[in-house]
């Protein structure tokens, strides 16, 4: 059976791509953020996940306002990155797993999550940079297969935190019912607090970010009680990317243990955060095995 071995959340600001391209990982501005991945690299080398479900938000590379899905799932054999307009390098293509994608889609729709199915999907920095951070030395071929899952964060109304939590739970149920042996890591990328637009641009809420980092481990349902208005007020208009963290956490069904966590203000306009969670086996799963 497929097993979800862990969850990783990380900020995905485009300037990470610029910092990598210029080799600035060890400069004072970036060192804390990049060094947060050292224990992540150790864990990945040990655990060797086969596939990553990447829950993220598209920033106007793949989806436009003509058709804006609330939730979309990739069902392609390959996902390409592309020019996003601001000059960060385009990364090599990512191998998909279409068979698992269709299983995931069938399970989600049966579970009343009526997702948009995408056989072509360009993946933007929110998808590519966390994978690059996980595997900084990868060349033309990534050592992991991927399936993208997007949550609309562009055009309100956005799904609620509670809905994203339930989506994550449904993703978890779908993956763990897949009969093929494989190890899966679930990513939620974005955040934490930031606001790019309006006269409150530059808003960062360290106190709220630290609360989220605490709750996401041991009491994630506390975060699902915020309304979207509250999240925008507390985390800024783009802080709604917290939804991806909540969905990631929903997919981890058992108790979790924190393997690594970092928080540092600022990277670009945001509170830069990284967290790796190990998905511990539940008693129910032990019994079932």
């Amino acid at each position: 059976m497929a097993r979800i071995i862990g969850g990783l959340s990380a900020s995905h600001v485009p300037s990470i791509g610029g910092a990598i391209a210029r080799g600035e990982q060890q400069t004072p501005y970036w060192k804390l953020f990049f060094d947060a991945f050292i224990p992540v690299h150790d864990w990945l080398a040990r655990e060797k996940p086969d596939l990553a479900i990447v829950i993220y938000n598209d920033h106007g590379l793949n989806f436009f306002l003509d058709k804006m899905p609330t939730f979309a799932v990739g069902a392609a054999h390959r996902y390409d990155n592309a020019d996003e307009g601001w000059g960060i390098p385009v990364l090599p293509s990512f191998e998909g797993d279409a068979a698992l994608s269709w299983h995931l889609i069938e399970s989600l729709v049966a579970d009343e999550f009526d997702v948009t199915m995408c056989q072509e999907m360009l993946v933007d920095h929110a998808f590519t940079l966390p994978i690059k951070l996980m595997y900084p030395r990868a060349g033309a071929h990534w050592p992991i297969r991927t399936i993208p899952v997007t949550i609309n964060s562009v055009q309100h109304p956005l799904p609620t935190a509670a809905r994203c939590w339930k989506l994550g739970q449904a993703i978890g149920r779908a993956l763990e019912s897949y009969p093929k042996d494989m190890k899966i890591i679930v990513l939620g990328t974005g955040g934490l607090s930031h606001q790019l637009d309006g006269t409150r641009a530059g808003f960062i809420n360290k106190e709220f970010d630290l609360l989220c980092l605490d709750k996401i481990v041991g009491d994630p349902e506390a975060l699902t009680r915020y309304t979207n208005r509250q999240i925008v007020e507390l985390a800024g208009s783009q802080g709604v990317e917290l939804m991806t963290w909540i969905a990631m956490r929903g997919a981890l069904q058992g108790r979790v243990s924190k393997v690594a966590s970092t928080y540092h203000v600022p990277i670009s306009n945001t509170g830069g955060a990284v967290m790796l969670l190990r998905n511990d086996q539940t008693p129910a799963r032990h019994a079932a095995e």
Partner: peptide, 21 residues
């Protein structure tokens, strides 16, 4: 305008999110 699309306009002039902030 939505800031995610506007960022691509800003990118033409080499402006990043600190510049527009």
């Amino acid at each position: 305008g939505n800031v995610y699309y506007l960022a691509k306009f800003a990118g033409i002039f080499g402006l990043n999110v600190q510049d527009i902030g």
